[in-house]
Nucleic acid binder design. Structure first.
Lengths: 273, 273
DNA sequence: TTGAAAGCGCTAACAG
DNA sequence: CTGTTAGCGCTTTCAA
């Protein structure tokens, strides 16, 4: 004997299966007396409806689950997006399956495939993948241009965009006068590296993505803020629109970015160097 | 016509339903010729197995989904735990449904209930809730004692433990000489508040939970580190043990904590005050 | 208002 | 090695 089923409840309450179904689904066309008996049986047996089974038979073929594939659920950007998506989903009675891709396209594809087997209603992605269900792609590239422009406007010509390999930057024969950091964790690594080398007031730094202590560091860190919560909300909104509209196929959402000048990004290159 | 089913594949390949099932499930006892025909039909129709349906009939009654209820998926601690749980789950072919409780017991209870209806194989929680399925509770209280002891050992007698209401602390008639901050976001708020009041070198601060720039702030922030990744791994490990063992009922996991002294927590109270 | 029968997509149990 | 039949827990359809 596993968990009690609707049939068990029906037997216990002395009614038909269908009556239990009606009560459980909150239909109002049930005699109050019978409904009370059903509810008593539900409580007595500890019955819980099986969403998987009901989904199988239902006409609206929805699992009320969506998948969210982000670079790293532990990272501040992904985490904030994830939370915002969760909130939008919750408002619609939908649950969220999360997945980290670590920017590996194969892993993203595998996850999409796995989520599709679960018949999620749709997916949110940060990198395009082959998907034949409702999906929204979040585009993070938008902020790069803005950061680059800012550094160029402050006189820099040797600018490096850093992904992960922070220390390699300083090993270059012709080291840059400015750095654009690709994520908050990279930004923090760069701050640390600049300090170790006594360069914190000499090399300009702009980070992609704001972080809580950016204004407390010295110099305070200039960033291109990307409002992950707004991004998540927008992506979820667009996804549910597709789902409700029966549309299908990827749709891109780009992030509204804001440059927040705090000091590190306004350092000018040493003249004559 | 919705998505193609196993029956459609069977018809297309000219074999029985069961043969398709065998091929899809990777059973080796199928004639290679037939298997090839089945695979061709799968590709041609874009067939994808329905995990929900298979789960319903299978004997092992597992959805291969678990739920993780954390304070806030956007927070660094929760996010890191979530990621670690995801990695453990992935290694076992299990997906993770995430949920933020915002420390609201009712919300936690509702989420548990909702996940149970989906027949998740188990749940991980940060606050106890009524659960009749495999579950693991993460205990975060462990670090508080360690932080308090550290401050007392440095001569403090008026210590405040802060949850959210940072500014209220400074409105107290007899302000504390030391602060223990309950989460990283609170810690950062306290740093900001101390600076605004010119108290950064006078009031001691210990934060619960390490964060990436704690050593870069001035003074550097002393914390009780809680290794969220290790916590997530441990919790997931314990949960899968329960699931595999067929056990049931809450089990508590406590976090191994480490005090990292960096300066802010070693400030002594002004003598004679 | 209530119920009986059929069947969602799939796997189990048993034959051939 | 292959197929047939039954049925997981539920909702639908239709009849009473």
């Amino acid at each position: 004997m596993g968990r009690p089923t609707m049939n068990d409840v029906a037997r216990n309450a002395g009614v038909s299966l269908k009556t239990v179904s009606r009560v459980v689904n909150g239909e109002t066309t049930v005699d109050p007396g019978l409904a009370a008996r059903v509810r008593a049986a539900v409580a007595a047996l500890g019955y819980r409806p099986n969403l998987g089974a009901s989904m199988l038979r239902r006409n609206d073929r929805r699992t009320r689950m969506i998948g969210v594939l982000l670079t790293d659920l532990a990272g501040p950007f992904s985490a904030a997006v994830h939370r915002a998506v969760e909130d939008e989903a919750r408002a619609r009675g939908v649950h969220v399956l999360g997945g980290s891709t670590d920017d590996d396209p194969q892993r993203a594809q595998d996850l999409v495939e796995a989520f599709a087997r679960r018949h999620v209603d749709g997916v949110i992605l940060t990198a395009p993948a082959v998907v034949d269900l409702p999906s929204v792609v979040i585009d993070r590239e938008a902020g790069i241009g803005q950061g680059m422009r800012h550094l160029r406007n402050h006189g820099h010509r040797r600018i490096v965009f850093v992904e992960r390999e922070v220390h390699a930057v300083f090993a270059l024969p012709d080291p840059p006068t400015a750095i654009l950091a690709g994520s908050t964790s990279v930004t923090i690594e760069v701050v640390r590296a600049l300090r170790e080398r006594g360069l914190r007031d000499r090399v300009a730094l702009v980070g992609l993505g704001d972080f809580p202590t950016a204004d407390l560091l010295e110099p305070a860190v200039t960033v291109v803020a990307q409002d992950p919560a707004a991004t998540g909300r927008a992506a979820a909104g667009a996804l549910f629109e597709q789902i409700d509209g029966g549309t299908q196929g990827a749709r891109a959402i780009s992030i509204p970015t804001t440059l927040i000048a705090r000091g590190s990004g306004e350092i000018r290159p040493a003249t004559g160097s």
